[in-house]
Amino acid sequence: MLDIRVEKTATPKDLPKADNPLKFGTIFTDHMFVMDYDIENGWQDARIIPYQPISLEPSAMVFHYGQEMFEGLKAYKTEDGKTLLFRPDKNIERANKTNRRICIPEIPEEDFLQAIKEVVKLDESWIPTKPGTSLYIRPFVIATDPFLGVRPSDTYKFMIILSPVGAYYPEGLNPVKIWIEDDYVRAVKGGIGDAKTGANYVASLKAQVKAHDEGYSQVLWLDGVERKYVEEVGAMNIFFKINGTIVTPVLTGSILPGVTRDSVINLCKSWGLPVEERRISIQEIHEAHQNGTLEEVFGTGTAAVISPVGQLRWEDTIMKVKDGGIGEYSQKLYDTITGIQLGKIEDNFQWIVEV
């Protein structure tokens, strides 16, 4: 167990007003968790301190070689005042998988979870309770060696910051429009597409800007080799309901293994829905749209939970999904997952962890 030193802020910030909409990722709580690593001592000096700027050498390796990992999960407040986390073990597991891939020392799982719980507990008054809101938790690790040379760093900082948030997309649960990118690529098998690291996201920005300029919320990426198989959306995994079957791209090493993705697969199977994890071409999606068997499209992710897709654009073809509204299972999945997260629906999968 970590011995976490706590330094409370002497100047608490005002909590966001309940009647003001929360823009995602713009407001931060009073405190942050920090822990350092060096080769001689390993992970040490765990502490919770006031939220503040960090001081790094201009030569810190994170700035030059991008050795950093980040995660994202949420805390929720129930009607009876409990604070709940949703499947934090899966985020911690994925964080350490990313750490291994980019040569960052792993963080013991029990220490990782303790750190999350303690900083959330200290700032739990910041957890919003308005429908559709939550406390976003952002753990991350950065390489801090002051060294210009391509090798793994010998020193790191592990930090956790917290942000009260509303909907990730301005549309909320209303269907979003997705641009299918066939020029730029996000990742390839053997790269870092299945790791949660900033390089994957900066690689997506050029296409994201292009999509926004055309009035689309996000980019759906095709595979980086043949440019014909669906992979994932910039901030979400993607699902299609085709002729009664839930289909999602199989994890091949270039797709991030989403926690919400895994939850959706488990829920759909428990409801008796056929689920297929396989390669799916954009041509197959186009044909399903043409013959009327493309029944629903939705994205899944921690930030948005479930995001219905009302329109897809592929080259010069615009595919409107059904009537552009929220599909039956998009709504059911959203209601079920958020119901479990808020303690309103029985958790038959043991996904919830109380802080």
Score class of each variant (00 low, 15 high):
residue 185 V to S: 08
residue 226 E to Y: 15
residue 196 K to P: 02
residue 230 V to P: 08
residue 143 A to G: 03
residue 156 Y to T: 00
residue 200 N to Y: 05
residue 174 N to A: 14
residue 234 G to W: 03
residue 165 V to Y: 05
residue 206 K to R: 13
residue 185 V to Q: 07
residue 182 D to C: 09
residue 171 E to F: 12
residue 228 K to L: 06
residue 239 F to K: 02
residue 158 F to M: 05
residue 212 H to K: 15
residue 233 V to N: 07
residue 198 G to Y: 01
residue 194 D to E: 12
residue 161 I to E: 00
residue 188 V to L: 07
residue 202 V to T: 15
residue 225 V to P: 02
residue 213 D to L: 13
residue 225 V to S: 12
residue 194 D to N: 15
residue 180 I to W: 03
residue 206 K to P: 06
residue 201 Y to A: 13
residue 202 V to L: 11
residue 140 F to M: 09
residue 232 E to D: 04
residue 231 E to T: 13
residue 192 I to V: 15
residue 227 R to E: 03
residue 141 V to F: 05
residue 215 G to A: 05
residue 190 G to N: 07
residue 215 G to N: 03
residue 139 P to R: 02
residue 208 Q to R: 04
residue 208 Q to N: 10
residue 180 I to G: 10
residue 188 V to A: 13
residue 143 A to E: 01
residue 197 T to D: 07
residue 156 Y to S: 00
residue 225 V to A: 11
residue 212 H to W: 04
residue 220 L to G: 06
residue 201 Y to P: 02
residue 218 Q to N: 07
residue 181 E to K: 13
residue 202 V to G: 15
residue 196 K to E: 01
residue 152 P to V: 10
residue 177 K to D: 13
residue 227 R to F: 13
residue 223 D to Q: 08
residue 191 G to R: 09
residue 168 Y to S: 04
residue 230 V to H: 08
residue 183 D to T: 10
residue 141 V to D: 03
residue 238 I to M: 11
residue 221 W to L: 13
residue 141 V to R: 01
residue 215 G to V: 03
residue 211 A to T: 06
residue 213 D to A: 15
residue 215 G to Q: 02
residue 168 Y to Q: 05
residue 233 V to W: 01
residue 181 E to R: 13
residue 142 I to G: 00
residue 198 G to A: 06
residue 178 I to Y: 11
residue 213 D to G: 15
residue 241 K to N: 13
residue 222 L to M: 14
residue 195 A to S: 11
residue 142 I to F: 02
residue 184 Y to C: 15
residue 150 V to D: 13
residue 149 G to H: 12
residue 151 R to S: 14
residue 211 A to Y: 06
residue 152 P to E: 06
residue 201 Y to Q: 09
residue 193 G to Q: 03
residue 158 F to C: 02
residue 145 D to A: 14
residue 147 F to K: 13
residue 156 Y to H: 06
residue 174 N to H: 10
residue 214 E to T: 08
residue 146 P to Y: 12
residue 181 E to M: 05
residue 191 G to K: 07
residue 217 S to F: 13
residue 151 R to L: 14
residue 138 R to H: 07
residue 161 I to H: 01
residue 144 T to Y: 02
residue 203 A to G: 05
residue 184 Y to A: 14
residue 195 A to I: 01
residue 190 G to R: 04
residue 225 V to N: 09
residue 145 D to R: 07
residue 160 I to P: 00
residue 143 A to I: 00
residue 241 K to A: 09
residue 156 Y to P: 00
residue 163 S to Y: 00
residue 230 V to Y: 06
residue 178 I to V: 14
residue 235 A to G: 08
residue 206 K to V: 11
residue 226 E to T: 11
residue 205 L to S: 02
residue 205 L to P: 08
residue 203 A to D: 09
residue 154 D to M: 10
